Amino acid sequence: MERRRRSAAVVALVLLVATSGCMGFLSGPITFEANKATESQQALQQTNYEEENVSQSVIERKFSAAGQTKTVKVTNWVAQYHRTVSVPVLGEREAAVFVLFSTPKVTVAGQGPFNPVADYNNEELVQLVQQQYKGLKDVQQVGNYSATMLGKETDVGKFSAKATFKNGQSVDVYVHVTKVEHGDDYVVAVAVHPQNIDEQQKILRLLEGAQHATNSSSS
């Protein structure tokens, strides 16, 4: 996928749920921030992926209830990586993409999580990816496989799709999606690559090499 369109594939996996029950007893802004999830340098070297960008995605909304207005601010992190591969017809492109997205659980007064990502399965996650990346279509699940991310075994959904590049050329791709609960956050991983290359072993290594700090005793 083209570089400028890549971030849209995952940035919109965000939340915002605030209820009148939460707002009645809290003063000031309500803020939640995820810890950054990134890829290890060792895994990048072993897979020939390169870091493209690590940035915050900040969502801020105002909610009114019971005569009060509260500002809710949620900070997510998006880390993007790519590898140059051969794409049919198009030649060499940075078309193998790996993204880590961390988003806070969002709990208030011990209640929650209110982050809807908590309940999303792989099929729902890839639907959000498709909604945000308009060049991705005809998404169909083709399988599942197990992987280890952040020390946990996780089920990875594998989907076939068609990706349209800026020049209008359509390429068959695979999309891999998984999610892990870690500390006070959810970490979502998405990988996209042309179907003409076998990228699964590299994706397994990148999933294994994911890093995420946690301030919680649960992990």
Rank of each mutant, 00 (worst) to 15 (best):
Q195H: 05
L125Q: 06
V156A: 05
G157N: 00
V177A: 09
Q111I: 11
Y186H: 08
E153R: 11
K162W: 07
P116S: 07
V192S: 06
S216H: 10
Q200G: 06
Q131N: 13
A118Q: 13
K166V: 08
G110I: 00
F159K: 03
V187M: 08
G112H: 10
Q130R: 14
G143I: 01
E153W: 01
N144P: 01
T148C: 07
T164C: 01
N122I: 00
V188N: 02
K152W: 09
V126G: 00
V106K: 04
L204E: 14
A163E: 13
S160K: 10
V177K: 01
V117R: 05
T154P: 07
T107G: 07
L125H: 05
V129A: 07
H212D: 02
S170Q: 15
H212G: 04
D185Q: 13
N115W: 04
Y174F: 14
E181F: 09
L128A: 10
A210K: 00
G168K: 04
K179Y: 03
Q127M: 11
M149W: 05
T154R: 04
G135L: 08
A213H: 14
D185L: 12
T107C: 12
T148P: 04
G135P: 03
K179T: 02
V108A: 10
A189Y: 08
P113C: 03
Y174V: 04
K105Q: 14
E208R: 03
E199C: 02
I197H: 05
Q131A: 15
G151Q: 09
Q130N: 12
H212I: 07
Q127I: 01
T148W: 03
K137N: 15
V171W: 09
N121Y: 04
A210N: 00
D184E: 13
S216L: 03
T154S: 12
Y174N: 15
P113A: 01
G110F: 04
Y145P: 04
Q131S: 13
G151T: 09
L204M: 10
K158D: 10
N215A: 12
V156P: 00
L207W: 01
V188E: 08
K137G: 06
L136V: 12
E124R: 10
P113D: 06
Y174A: 10
L128K: 14
Y133Q: 09
F165I: 06
R205K: 15
D119W: 11
Q132K: 11
D198V: 12
H212R: 09
D198A: 15
L136K: 05
Q200A: 09
H193F: 12
R205W: 02
P113Y: 11
A189E: 08
Q140E: 15
D172Q: 13
T214W: 11
D185V: 08
H212F: 03
P116Y: 12
Y145E: 12
S146V: 08
Y145A: 02
V177R: 05
H212T: 09
G110A: 01
Q130E: 15
V188Q: 02
G157F: 05
L206A: 02
D119V: 12
